[in-house]
Computed example of a mutant assay.
Amino acid sequence: MREAMTGASGMVNARDLGGLRTTDGRQVRPRRVVRADSPTELDPAGLEHLVDHFGLRTVLDLRNVEEVSVDGCGELRDRVARYRNLPVHGPDRQRLDLTSVSPDGSMLHRYIGYLAESPDTIVAALTELADPGGLPALVHCAAGKDRTGVVVALLLGVIGVSEEEIIADYAETAANVDLLRARVGRARTAHARGTAVAELPDWVFAAEATTMRRFLEHMSAQHGGVVAWTTAAGLEPAVQQRLSEILLEPAH
């Protein structure tokens, strides 16, 4: 059973990866990794929930340097033992959910762009999560949908979570789209660039199962699968094994 992160008030797209199932029937351990939107709006109760109740130790911030500088990190950064800024970006090195829209009305090409432009960062993030002393960990970007969605999908693929579970986890964001659009519109970076968030097409904020399914199909067709891509990108087999050992319940 997956644990709801309703106590993390001030976040609108946070969830524990615990409970997701692998192809051989094992489950991801609860209270190991949380995926989320930016923690900059956490209120005191939400902060207490993550730090004291959940026991959070590490924050992996996938936003770019400008977002971190302009939007800030909130109080959470100073309340955890480890904070790492590991920017994930595509060819334009910008926050891709707020730049020019795709001609095909899809986020897929942006996700593929992360693979081409940020392999070292992605490997660094996965390697951080393989350190049991740094767990529980929170992985976030601005909305917790695109950059976080790709890194989490690769993490889950490495440890053998089934594609259907990866797709379903990604699609859970769909219920939070209206809240995400509102909070992205409040971000200082949006105002600094003069971005009219209200005018962006709905698909920029969408989290459709089809998008993640196509991404995983791309991984298989073009790279031989998630494990093959992460290995080629530099994720050591020993780290992959350690991820499975510390994130999955033991086999029965």
Rank of each mutant, 00 (worst) to 15 (best):
V88M: 10
G194R: 04
R193W: 15
E48H: 14
H252Q: 11
P87G: 09
E165T: 03
L47W: 10
V161G: 00
L47P: 08
G185P: 11
L20M: 10
E245Q: 15
G224F: 08
G225D: 07
D71P: 07
Q241D: 12
V239E: 03
L50W: 02
G225H: 09
L20W: 10
G25L: 04
G225W: 02
L62H: 01
A233H: 03
V123D: 00
S106D: 09
V12L: 11
G46W: 09
F205G: 01
D78N: 11
C141H: 10
L50P: 02
A125I: 11
A124R: 13
T210Q: 14
V70F: 08
E236I: 02
A14S: 13
L96S: 14
L235I: 09
L50M: 05
E172S: 08
E41A: 13
P237S: 07
G194E: 04
L179M: 12
G144E: 09
T231A: 14
W203K: 05
I167S: 02
A142M: 05
D169V: 04
G133F: 09
V226W: 01
A124T: 15
A221G: 04
T22Y: 03
A207G: 02
L200W: 10
E164F: 07
A8D: 02
V12A: 12
D202M: 08
